[in-house]
Design a protein around this nucleic acid. Structure first.
Length: 764
RNA sequence: UGAGGUGUAGCUCAAUUGGCAGAGCACCUGACUCUGAAUCAGGCGGUUCGAGGUUCAAGUCCUCGCACCUCAACCA
């Protein structure tokens, strides 16, 4: 099992840590639950890395479960490809390979349990009726006429459904929850439907099949899952997940579902439906076409599994819907291949270069390193006076900064000799036929004995021995950054040149390359041997190009900063004269409109604040305390039965006004008040919240200043923002009890005393 | 129009729970180089979605807005 570096942020990891620390679980069990109805793609890789990776990190297990509850879409072909892909990615489920179908009996029992508890019923509505009665997002649904069917009758009907007595669609089993729920998922969702279909695993044993929401959480429970991670679109389904688990006799501790954002990669698609369409309509050559974002496609293209894992680790896991730039993935592929891929030389558009002064009939067996840094050995590239070089590596009229061949310019043939072109042979159209060059025979290996510098190095291939090959220049499948966006048909956005094929000639060592082997073709890119390649007909797929800053510089698109920030400046709704009048009671005594509004919105709060004023508090203090701090302390709790009254608020206000309490102390008291009532004065005593005065603060400030001399100096130098940092340190050290105003004054005073310019004056 | 989510640098994410707004990638510059690659160093880049409020101090707390995503399959 491979553990990823786990450097990026991942809130799921934090979540597990918290659960483990709190003792909610004594081990971690996650699961990866694909539906076997398609091939895994790069988006799944994120989920695989999250589930398997996290389990491994915490010493737990991750199960692999085929979520096969819909026999009409699923197939054994997919089950096998899914396993292959996960294994190839580097993960191992051990003996924990399961199928939701393995739990059909158990799920059936849970369903009966729900019917027995009158929490489910057999419904005879048609598909259309059910849809119509579900209501809309703003209107409640209406109950099925079968909603109150007696338990015994539902039990009987359900048994007969299972026995195969009804036709497809005739009946369903529905959970009895709430037809008026604002969460549409809760409006009596179906649990079982009748499907007389052959299941890839259970054959014809079952004429009824459970639906995702019912099956999923309960399957998690059966497997002892602790953390069930899924994508954001299931957030509304969580209520159902919880409902089924809470209302059945499932294992405890129970699993909980958490959602994260699925991976969206620019320039590609990860919709199963659309990928399937690409395959079935022959827009690509299959699920493992090297242009496909499927795991098998990436594998065929030559992307190493480590690159995918590192990529998933780098992008992290969050709940923000986001689009990852394809460049990030490509960069991760380069990083991995750069480290591991042996180097070879291949020429795509060859021009013969003849060394006219090469000693007749001699062959130099040059040894070239397979990798610039890693120790991957060497291979022999024989040189006999004639080589192929790239046509594009020669220029008659070199631009500024040119580092390649040109008449009279000395250039290095990589790992071989320094050469200078003297003569260019052309046909009548001016096309170059051959380059004639001389070489420095003393520069064998690539360095001149006199140490002269040569700017350019180009790759080459001996004319003999060499091999010809086809290079599939795999590029982006789509021509636009966000295919299928808006009304666009994604098929219209396919890149017509997504995989041009070029012939090339390569060094002889390439003949023995086996399918899957990946190389860096120097100065060109990373290529892997295709699955269909043979020694007679070599085929390479480009896994990724090399970065090319030269090409970038020459085509330099004048890129303007598109500061297209659509910022609709919406002014805060100005209160009407009418509203202002209603608020006047508060605003007249100096309370802000916002706070006044807040109080007016809740009669209990308004009364409480006025009671506090009646009990002697300053109106503004009472309003702020209730309108801001109390609301915060309430944290969504109702204001109906507060265990304290206006007198408590008044007393709190005075405690704050007279300097007994600082803001933090005030909040602590308020929290206590909300929980269990009581008298503020007594709470302050009990929790010892009295803030620290100047005398008690002096030593603390001295210590803080001593511990942070650099920050102190910067503050002395005029960086006033450091006061926040240093004051924060003081607060931390005093457990939040320092009087911030006093502390601030003392801090400024001390710093001023250490200021170099005033040091003389400050002396005793 | 209901419910559930999400808004921090061009992109992806942090920010010790109220205390100096940072990192990686991208981009630019320089160094180095037998791959115009890699590597190394530096730099640019901020209305923390907006407007208010509370506080000594707000990305963080409160209020009101805005934008985007998901949900009305007997799919998952």
């Amino acid at each position: 099992m491979i553990e990823s570096a786990s450097s990026s942020s991942n809130f799921l990891r934090d979540l597990i840590e918290t659960d483990l620390a709190a003792g909610r679980y004594d081990r971690v069990v996650t699961r990866f639950p694909p539906e076997p109805n398609g091939y895994l793609h790069i988006g799944h890789a994120k989920a695989i890395c999250a589930n398997f990776g996290l389990a491994a990190q915490f010493g737990g297990v991750c199960t692999l479960r085929m979520d096969d509850t819909n026999p009409t879409k699923e197939d054994i072909e997919y089950v096998e490809s899914i396993q292959d892909d996960i294994r190839w990615l580097g993960f191992d489920w051990g003996e924990h390979f399961f199928h939701a179908a393995d739990y059909f009996e158990q799920l059936y029992r849970y369903a009966r349990e729900l019917i027995s508890k009158d929490l489910a019923y057999v419904c005879s509505q048609t598909n259309e009726e059910m849809r119509r009665d579900r209501g809309t997002v703003i209107e409640a649904g209406t109950a099925s006429p079968d909603r109150d069917r007696p338990t015994a009758e539902s039990l009987d009907l359900f048994a007969r459904m299972r026995a195969g007595e009804f036709a497809d669609g005739e009946l369903t089993l529905r959970a009895k929850i709430d037809m008026a729920a604002s969460n549409m998922k809760l409006r009596d969702p179906p649990m079982y439907r009748i499907r007389h279909a052959t299941h890839h695993r259970t054959g014809d044993d079952w004429p009824i099949y459970p639906i995702y929401d019912f099956a999923h959480g309960l399957s998690d429970s059966v497997e002892g899952i602790t953390h069930s991670f899924c994508t954001l679109e299931f957030q509304n389904n969580r209520a159902l997940y919880d409902w089924y688990i809470e209302n059945t006799s499932t294992l405890r501790p129970r699993p909980y579902q958490y959602e994260f954002a699925r991976l969206v990669l620019s320039w590609t698609l990860t919709s199963k439906r659309k990928l399937l369409q690409l395959v079935t309509e022959d827009h690509v050559q299959g699920w493992d076409d090297p242009r496909m974002p499927t795991i098998s496609g990436l594998r065929r293209r030559g992307v190493p599994p480590a690159a995918i894992r590192n990529f998933c680790d780098r992008i992290g896991v969050s709940k923000t819907n986001s689009i990852i730039e394809m460049e990030v993935f490509e960069e991760e592929i380069r990083a991995e291949l750069n480290r591991t891929a042996p180097r070879r030389m291949v020429v795509r558009d060859p021009v013969r270069l003849v060394l006219v002064d090469w000693p007749e009939g001699t062959v130099d067996p040059l040894e070239l390193a397979n990798h610039p840094s890693a120790d991957l050995g060497t291979r022999t590239v024989p040189l006999a006076g004639q080589v192929f070089v790239e046509r594009s590596d020669f220029s008659d009229d070199p631009p500024k900064g040119w580092k390649r061949l040109s008449v009279g310019v000395e250039v290095r043939l990589r790992g071989a000799y320094l050469v200078t072109v003297n003569e260019v042979l052309r046909d009548e159209d001016g096309r170059i036929l051959e380059l004639h060059a001389t070489h420095d025979h003393a520069s064998r290996g690539g360095d001149a004995p006199d140490g002269r510098k040569v700017r350019g190095t180009i790759h080459w291939v001996p004319t003999e021995p060499s091999v010809t090959m086809n290079l599939r220049m795999v590029d982006r499948l789509f021509a636009v950054a966000n295919p299928g966006e808006g009304d666009a048909d994604f098929l219209d956005e396919l890149n017509p040149a997504s995989m041009p094929i070029t012939e090339a000639v390569g060094e002889g060592a390439l003949r023995d390359a086996a399918p899957g082997d990946a190389f860096q073709f120097e100065r060109i890119g990373y290529f892997a041997v295709d699955a269909d390649s043979t020694a007679e007909a070599l085929v390479f797929n480009r896994a990724v190009s090399l970065r090319d800053t030269w090409a970038k510089a020459s085509t330099a698109p004048t890129k303007g900063k598109s500061k297209a920030r659509s910022a609709p400046v919406v002014a805060a709704a100005t209160p009407s004269a009418e509203e202002l009048a209603a608020l006047a009671a508060w605003t007249e005594v100096g309370v802000s409109v916002e706070t006044a509004r807040m109080l007016k919105a809740d009669a209990a709060l308004d009364t409480l604040a006025w009671d506090a004023v009646l009990a002697g508090a300053e109106a503004k203090d009472a309003a702020n305390l209730v309108g801001n701090e109390l609301v915060r302390a309430l944290d969504g709790r109702g204001t109906d039965a507060l265990p304290f009254g206006g007198d408590a608020i008044a007393s709190l206000a005075s405690l704050s006004a007279d300097g007994t309490l600082n803001q933090r102390g005030l909040r602590a008291v308020l929290a206590e008040l909300v929980m269990s009532g009581g008298a503020p004065g007594e709470i302050v005593e009990r929790l010892s919240l009295v803030q620290l005065s100047s005398d008690a603060l002096t030593p603390v400030i001295t210590a803080v200043l001593a511990d942070h001399p650099e920050e102190a100096a910067r503050l002395a130098g005029g960086e006033t923002k450091l006061i926040g940092f240093l004051l924060g340190q003081v607060m931390r050290r005093t457990g939040g009890k320092a009087d911030p105003k006093a502390a601030r004054a003392l801090l400024m005073q001390s710093v001023a005393g250490t200021r170099p310019s005033t040091a003389g004056k400050a002396g005793p």
